[in-house]
Simulated scan of single mutants.
Amino acid sequence: MAKTASSLVLPIIFLVMFALVAQNMGCMAVLGSCGVISDCSMACKSKFGSNARGYCDRDGGSGTCVCVYPCPADKSHTL
């Protein structure tokens, strides 16, 4: 019985951690080029509210302005 219980501990811990991470990830949106948007953080806050965070993803060229914000209750996690 002890082996059965101990073999279930890691999968249960993994499932709990996955549920907590998925709940706290939030939504993401791409606003445009960092060359056009001078302050990604302020642009994200004005579009998605004060809890939004913005950063410039320098993936090439002038980069892309990416926002991370809390998902509305009726929306799934999207990019």
Rank of each mutant, 00 (worst) to 15 (best):
A2W: 15
K3H: 09
K3P: 08
K3A: 12
K3G: 04
T4Q: 08
T4S: 02
A5M: 09
S6R: 08
S7E: 04
V9P: 15
P11V: 05
I12E: 02
I12G: 07
F14G: 00
L15K: 12
M17V: 05
M17P: 00
F18A: 09
A19I: 06
L20P: 08
L20W: 00
L20C: 07
L20M: 13
V21R: 06
A22C: 14
Q23A: 09
Q23R: 15
Q23C: 03
N24W: 11
N24Q: 08
N24T: 10
N24R: 13
M25E: 09
G26V: 04
C27A: 06
M28G: 08
M28K: 09
M28N: 11
V30Q: 15
G32H: 13
G32E: 02
G32R: 12
S33I: 03
S33Y: 10
V36I: 11
D39A: 04
D39P: 05
D39M: 09
C40K: 04
S41Y: 05
M42T: 12
M42S: 07
A43V: 03
A43C: 06
C44G: 04
C44K: 07
K45P: 04
K47N: 06
K47T: 13
K47P: 02
K47M: 10
F48A: 13
S50P: 12
S50I: 13
S50M: 14
S50V: 13
N51H: 13
N51E: 11
G54P: 04
Y55C: 03
R58I: 14
D59P: 12
D59R: 15
D59L: 14
G60Q: 00
T64A: 05
T64D: 02
C65S: 00
C65D: 01
V66F: 00
V66E: 00
C67M: 01
C67L: 00
V68R: 15
Y69Q: 02
P70A: 06
P70F: 09
A73I: 10
D74M: 10
S76H: 12
S76L: 09
H77W: 12
L79P: 11
L79M: 14
L79G: 09
L79D: 08
L79F: 13
